[in-house]
């Protein structure tokens, strides 16, 4: 990711669910957004598509940490995906895209 990525406003911060995820759409990309008020940064974005379960569901998983890495567990078959990188902890061939997001006031911005 480079700095000249286009920043797109996705939604409002108040649309997010604290300590959990929700899905947003930009074009044909489906993006899982996680809002963790106690962490820095507070907002994370990875692809919503679960390459193992083959469905758009990662935004509906449980967030936590494994060995210090902040992860979401797929609600289908429970593999863990690193919210900082999109890497799948159990299967390196199943990594998902990761996006840069930021909060600008009440706006959630994503770099595409």
């Amino acid at each position: 990711m480079t700095q000249d990525n286009k920043l797109v406003a996705l939604c409002k911060q108040s649309d997010l669910i604290p300590n959990s995820g929700i899905c947003a759409r930009v074009g044909d990309q489906q993006i899982a957004l996680f809002y963790l008020p106690k962490e820095t940064p507070q907002v994370y974005a990875i692809g919503d598509w679960d390459p193992i379960g083959k469905a758009n569901v990662l935004s509906r998983g449980i967030v936590g940490d494994i060995d210090g890495r902040i992860v979401v567990a797929s609600p289908l078959y429970k593999q863990h995906f690193d919210l900082h990188t999109g890497d799948c902890l159990e299967d390196a061939t199943a990594n998902v895209p990761c996006y840069r997001v930021s909060l600008d006031g009440d706006q959630v911005l994503i770099a595409l």
Binding site: V63, D65, G68, A73, K78
Partner: peptide, 8 residues
């Protein structure tokens, strides 16, 4: 830590 999909 932060918890996980087992303990939560």
């Amino acid at each position: 830590g932060r918890g996980c999909d087992i303990c939560k």
